[in-house]
Amino acid sequence: MNPSASVTSPRQGSAAVGVSVEGLSKDFSGFPVLRGISLTVNPGEIFVLMGPSGSGKSVLLKHVVGLERPSAGRVLVDGHDAADPATRGRVRMALVFQAGALFNSMTVYDNLALYPREHRLGTEAAIRDKVMRSLQMLSLENAAGKVPAELSGGMRKRVAIARALVMEPQLMLYDEPTSELDPVMSATISEVIATLREQYHVTSIVVSHDRDLALGIADRVGILMGGRLVSLGPPADLRAPSDPRVADFLNPSIDLRNPRFRRLAG
């Protein structure tokens, strides 16, 4: 991995954007998933969103990128309503999906080249240059001709990040970027996220269960539980949380005499 390698210079007029979530609620078939979430992510910030599985983190992320429509409230990206499809034309947003969401019928190279080709962002030679530099940054040069089925889980994540990088995004969203990765690869992905912010001042929202990632690179951390934002503050707060639910989530103890599943059942 070569985080210091220069990928490409940010496009003219490119600037990090802020995100404002205002009273966001979402129901699926009457079942509330998000309940009145309000938060602001500042331009250039790395905001890490943590919480137990099923707490609504990924759903919140999908609202930011406009893949879900709110039941109530709204999400503003650089002042534009995220639910409006036109916002994706005004603000360059990239979402790194948990499973990569790579195009399985295309090679890694074509996966990366799709965005600039479709938006006609240069000649084929210029696109090739940009794609190869993105692959180089994530040490994926040798994978350019492979199809996603030939890649390991860690490589798929890196290809997904490289594909997002080619878009020169103003807002990067990561859905569980370190899940299913070994500790070294997790640390590497965290370094890549931090490096991208340093080099391009891109705003980053990272959904993760990874406490080390949050402590290592976040400017602020929000914790979602049961669809509500129960904690919001600097990562240092994670070391001594005041809320017992947050403390249990971040430092779960293993009690074989009184296991959690029995306590919950009782």
């Binding site: 406009g66 893949l67 990239a94 999906f97 969401a101 195009f103 399985n104 878009m167």
Partner: peptide, 20 residues
């Protein structure tokens, strides 16, 4: 089958986020 597979494996979502 192809489009359903792309939808289930979030490739369609990826296209939308890329404004394609």
């Amino acid at each position: 089958a192809e489009l359903a597979s792309m939808k289930v494996y979030q490739e369609i979502d990826a296209l939308e986020t890329m404004n394609i």
